[in-house]
């Protein structure tokens, strides 16, 4: 079993109470793994109670990337959150710990 970190990299961005987390394949041949296994449902479950709203996945096949937009994910919004990491900058590191089955889904 791999971790997502072995095949992809990631960066988090913030707007208000919405966090977006990109997942970008290092190699194009791993793109199908991302499509099949890094679903909005799995990401939502992986983040657990940290996200109270919906999770939407956007696909960018030409650069081998997914973009997850996670609502109600930043403790009420960057400017008023009580969190130590109000921007959710660290969320990209959490998504990279998602288990990936290299043999296929």
């Amino acid at each position: 079993m791999l971790q997502l970190r072995d095949i992809a990299h990631s960066r988090t961005g913030d707007k208000g109470n919405i966090s977006n987390v990109s997942v970008i394949a290092y190699h194009p041949e791993d793109w199908p793994l991302l499509i099949d296994q890094v679903t909005a449902e799995r990401v939502r479950a992986h983040f657990g109670t940290m996200i109270s709203g919906k999770v939407i996945r956007y696909e960018l096949p030409q650069i081998g990337a997914l973009n997850f937009v996670m609502h109600d994910a930043l403790g009420g919004g960057v400017t008023r959150s009580l969190a130590l990491d109000p921007h959710g900058k660290c969320l990209s590191s959490l998504i990279l710990s998602l288990p990936i089955n290299k043999a296929g889904a």
Partner: peptide, 16 residues
């Protein structure tokens, strides 16, 4: 690199 540009491309982007 392509990778640094891809990370920045999606930074703070919702619907691309």
């Amino acid at each position: 690199t392509a990778a640094t540009c891809k990370e920045q491309l999606l930074y703070e982007v919702h619907d691309p």
